[in-house]
Amino acid sequence: MALNQSLRPGLIQLRVLDLDETLKFYKDILGMDEVCRTSDGRVCLKTYDEFDHHSVTLRLADEAGLDYVAFKVASNETLQEMVKATEQFGYTVTEVPADSDQPGYGKRYRFKICTGHTFELYSEVALAEKTPGTINPDIWNEPPRGMGVIRLDHFLLYGPNIEEAERYCTEVMHMYVPELCNKPDGKRMATWITGSNKPHDLAFVEYDKPGKIHHVGFLLQDWNHVGQVADLIAINRLKKDIGPTRHAITRGQTIYFWEPSGNRIEVYAGGYTAYPDNPQRVWDVDHLGRGLFYYEGEIIPSFLEIVT
């Protein structure tokens, strides 16, 4: 385990049912900037505080949900080592050429993991045209819009055999598991995984159907901004799922709601600083309600059962 190999989840491609309406949400309400459009009509977006070319791509499709997630790793050397280890782990890897379907992106390596999700690894991506300042920089160049999300933070995936997925992340991607939840039989129910100091870069919940996404999480500055998001959800008649509340797991302060195509979004602030040498936090299923929703103290059924 190390903090300097898997940098972060850097790109996610989501399917949307109504591109115009959903894009309007990502730009005007969530506060992302449109970076470019691809020749096949997908739209690339980034937050105001991200340096890389883009972090979210929206694709018009006949069902909502996740196409794939891509992780940025520290160097081409690390990338090649992880690709070899991925093949040795048993996943078939295909190469996606540089500057092909994701503008600005270098070579990516794509494979499907046991949970049915498509993962990608890459090490090179162009800087965005508009990046945060770097020389005596101000805190932003243009005032953040709407919810003013700072960056793509994490995602929660639902699928079968998450123990293997966790093992892939730790053995091949050199991530670690700050927190987990086991069923009474000792099998994994949920796992929170990171390659950084964030409490999670991704998480999995065990689920019989493959390839599902529960939510995409974006970072907010603090609890005040969580409140501001709640106002914007109400003003814009978005459908809220849960919050504002706090997780005991990760300690994040949070709201969940749905964007116009039915993909669940989390906005998240705080959370503890994770270190790979800290003892792991372990939850029993009968305490999971309090772990997920610390203020409510109980499971909220819509949260566990609704995925896209």
Partner: peptide, 12 residues
């Protein structure tokens, strides 16, 4: 029924 996404995506 329960209330989900209101966006045609979750199917509940």
């Amino acid at each position: 029924i329960r209330y989900g996404c209101f966006g045609g995506g979750c199917g509940v």
